[in-house]
């Protein structure tokens, strides 16, 4: 089966610093992929290049066979690539429900009516457990609620591929489990998910396959249990 996301030879430099070098990565439709790596290993740069926030210098990225390289971020979103941000970035002047309304209005393939927007937005909020907060402003939400809003807003774009960029940093153990459950449920609905995470417990519980970046290179790609035993990965995390 052809890969949903196909990244070939991706490279990105900032001046003389090579942030990403020659990354190859294929993600199959419906897969749950974990992406790990120490700080500064290029995970966020990778997300930014895939989603279009940064332009990569070399290589090619396709989603469902469609070349993404020259497209601005909003067109990639419309093609089915949604992301959540590392630090939640809600639309602060809009209510929680209106936050979802933006992608519902803009990212969908078909134009939704007012009632459809409301209905779908409330359904998504129900799914992440924020239905009773619909009329509140994002700043009134707790940390975990803001993370859920971030994921719900990404889901409102109707993605085929969701990139969850460290959506659990700073959460308690119970809250981490809650987000992992949520992501597993979304995956169960057919959404392919790339989880970028430092919390190994969450990554191991979630991922079917694990990829590790070290200093802008992919050093491991395989079954999670094998990747964490990989000597290069161990060295990167634990030192010599």
């Amino acid at each position: 089966m052809a890969a949903l996301l196909d990244v070939q030879g991706l490279g990105k430099r900032f001046g003389g610093f090579t942030a990403l070098a020659d990354i190859d990565l294929q993600v199959a439709a419906g897969e749950r992929l974990g992406l790990i790596g120490p700080n500064g290993s290029g995970k966020s740069t990778f997300v930014n290049c895939i989603s279009g926030t940064l332009r990569h210098d070399s290589g090619r990225v396709t989603l469902g066979g469609q070349l993404l390289d020259a497209l601005p971020p909003h067109q990639r979103t419309r093609l089915g690539l949604a992301r959540s941000f590392q630090l939640p970035r809600p639309f602060g002047s809009l209510t929680v429900a209106e936050n979802l309304r933006v992608p519902l209005l803009y990212a969908g393939a078909t134009k939704l009516s007012d009632a459809e927007c409301r209905e779908r937005g409330m359904a998504l909020l129900g799914q992440v457990g924020l239905a009773d907060k619909a009329a509140q402003r994002p700043r009134e939400l707790t940390q975990i609620e803001q993370r859920k809003l971030e994921l719900a807003r990404a889901m409102a774009a109707g993605p085929r591929l969701l990139i969850a960029d460290e959506s659990m940093a700073g959460l308690s153990n119970a809250e981490v489990d809650e987000i992992v459950d949520l992501l597993l449920r979304l995956n169960g609905q057919g959404v392919t998910i790339i989880m970028i995470e430092h919390i190994m417990r969450a990554v191991m519980a979630f991922s079917q396959r694990l990829v590790c970046f070290v200093a802008g290179r992919k050093v491991a790609d395989g079954l999670p249990e094998e990747v964490v035993r990989n000597p290069e990965v161990e060295r990167a995390y634990l030192g010599e």
């Binding site: 970035r89 002047s93 809009l94």
Partner: peptide
């Protein structure tokens, strides 16, 4: 409004 609040997030939400 999305642009005013956070332009990169607006773009990621599909706003041209």
């Amino acid at each position: 409004a999305a642009i005013r609040d956070d332009e990169a997030a607006a773009e990621a939400a599909g706003v041209p």
